[in-house]
Nucleic acid binder design. Sequence first.
DNA 1: TCCAGCTTGTGACATAATTCACAACGTAAG
DNA 2: CTTACGTTGTGAATTATGTCACAAGCTGGA
Lengths: 211, 211
Amino acid sequence: MLSEKTVERLSEYRRHLSDLQARGVTHVFSNLLAAETRVTAAQVRRDMMNLGLSGSTATGYSVSDLLEHLAGLLDHPHSTRVALIGTGNLGRALLAFFRARPGKAVIAMAFDSDPEKSNRVCCGCRVYPMDSLEARIREDEIRTAILCVPEQDANAVAQRLVNAGVTGILNFAPTRLKVGDQVYVDTMDISSVIEKVGYYAVRGTRAPGRK
Amino acid sequence: MLSEKTVERLSEYRRHLSDLQARGVTHVFSNLLAAETRVTAAQVRRDMMNLGLSGSTATGYSVSDLLEHLAGLLDHPHSTRVALIGTGNLGRALLAFFRARPGKAVIAMAFDSDPEKSNRVCCGCRVYPMDSLEARIREDEIRTAILCVPEQDANAVAQRLVNAGVTGILNFAPTRLKVGDQVYVDTMDISSVIEKVGYYAVRGTRAPGRK
DNA sequence: TCCAGCTTGTGACATAATTCACAACGTAAG
DNA sequence: CTTACGTTGTGAATTATGTCACAAGCTGGA
């Protein structure tokens, strides 16, 4: 099992590798990949080692090899189709974002409790009423969800998602979700992050431990 | 200088402490604060130690003391007034978010290159044209900015922000900003995060090292 | 008064993450 | 062929981060 930090780096490697491939580059050295991202060449090589990939001292790593392995790790059918809960400002921003930047992951369905918003199409995505959440998520075997509901509803909705089979939640509500240990939750707490940025901004420095 | 992880925890402590204070609680034990967040009691005590704060074995830590010290660290005048660049879907979502949840940080001004959007008020915030960016940021001594512009513009705008005196950037463009080491950047890369969530979702587990 | 039962503060330890540094490799040029 | 150069793969060292465990503190009740 790879660590979170490793998975984050892999995702970033992939973006640059796709770029390189689009530009016709077939092989890449660890130091080039490292320069694009913010890691050291040794870190890149270590990650490749953890993935069981190897390169050649003469030509470096094969771009297509790397992309293939990364796709195998990151593009599971259950992870690329995600559900979005809540089509408020943020939810719509995310719908637009995913539509504008068609990566592997797509928002396959959206839900909203407001009858005004559901049973419509928003940003190219069908919005369903909350009643149908469990049924539709089960039917499509969705495992990954983005939670954009108000803070006070977050836990209840999260519970419903888990009951419907969701095992990974990207939570935008500034609250800690109480779900079982078998469910992965990443909370993006904007208030918290902006406080962190402010903290280092007034001190005029990068955080300790950053390159 | 506190580490990023520490600052993140402090921010979270503060949210819960505010709650407690609002409910009239005056003192708190490390284990209670730990239960609310996702850390151990020892971690809470260690953080307090790093902050130079102390509690009493009988009553725990004083909520107001903690809040006061945390405010001293997190609420610098230069960090609570932030500029927002780009009022697309995401930018508007953030304006609405900060307006709906009035914490210490507020979006003091917004900018957009589209003449249709600038020179108006959006979500309660005045939107200025990009031309005036440097002047207004300098005048208000803004040090912290949220970047919500398209990927291809991100680096150019970041450079302008830094020239205008900004030293902390919360970047939503999925690209690494090339700024000097004295500028703190936190990139929230949604694509990357959703891939991470998907990775652990299909494997049905929390990441290693999570409690 | 004195003890039981909780707490804090913290040195020591444990674990995770990253970097160093170097042997082994492979190519290109001479 | 052989040397010079730049690379990979990786054990070891280093740094960062989190936890343990326990002495010492405080309070309330017997």
